[in-house]
Amino acid sequence: MNFFLFAAETNLLQTDITLHHYLLLGAILFVCGIVCMATKRNAIGVLMGVELVLNGATVNFVSFAHFNPTFDIEGQIFALFVIVMAAAEAAIALAIVLNFYNNHFTVDVDAAEELKG
């Protein structure tokens, strides 16, 4: 028995890819985004965390669309809306960051404390 046949028929990874595989991948993206938002001091780093969170949500939409044929248009359209919204959000957030940098000469989010009581 050759190696390729063995690797193909071994029970280790025999299970087909199901919805759960994709959902767990989306959860990894989501959690990494949350951790990124929590730990990054750089405002642009926080923005990257938001992008990761949105991507996790999009993976969920598309995988539900794939595994539930009733909703395959909905899954794709909501995912498209999420992508477009993310682009708009990035543009506005960068504009705010640039404005903040112009006023404070830093993009450290901890420096934005003027409204602290």
Binding site: N2, F4, L5, A7, A8, E9
Partner: peptide, 8 residues
């Protein structure tokens, strides 16, 4: 050396 219907 795989059979025709192998999914490898």
């Amino acid at each position: 050396g795989l059979p025709e219907d192998s999914l490898s």
